[in-house]
Design a protein around this nucleic acid. Sequence first.
DNA 1: TGCTTGACAGAAG
DNA 2: CCTTCTGCCAAGC
Length: 112
Amino acid sequence: MKDYPDKMTVDEVRAFQSDVLNIVSQIPLGRVTTYGLIATLAGWPSHARMVGRTLRYSPEATQLPCHRVVNKEGRTAPGWGGQRLLLEEEGVCFKANGHVDMNRYLWEPEDL
DNA sequence: TGCTTGACAGAAG
DNA sequence: CCTTCTGCCAAGC
């Protein structure tokens, strides 16, 4: 007995991506959230990678503050120079190890 | 139909 | 800061 469905239907994928975009659009300036957290809120805890794919390939994400989405350790997206600079401009400080200080800036989305 | 790719998570070196 | 490994799972080829 699985704790969660093993495969997404087309409709579920659509709903998931819709939730992802909706959540990202609500991230306050100067705060960050994580891929895994968004996936969990959308109802698919193990689909953190799909959150990243959605933000990368969905045209809608272009106008969203997707730079405020980092991974759980506070690392910025690989291959995306500029994300760190954008966050620093909003007042987000980075720790010596190059990670965002999640302890201070993590924003937890409100339930829908 | 099967193998490879990742804007992930987390641990390790 | 970097690289590499396992587990995860939709998307691409």
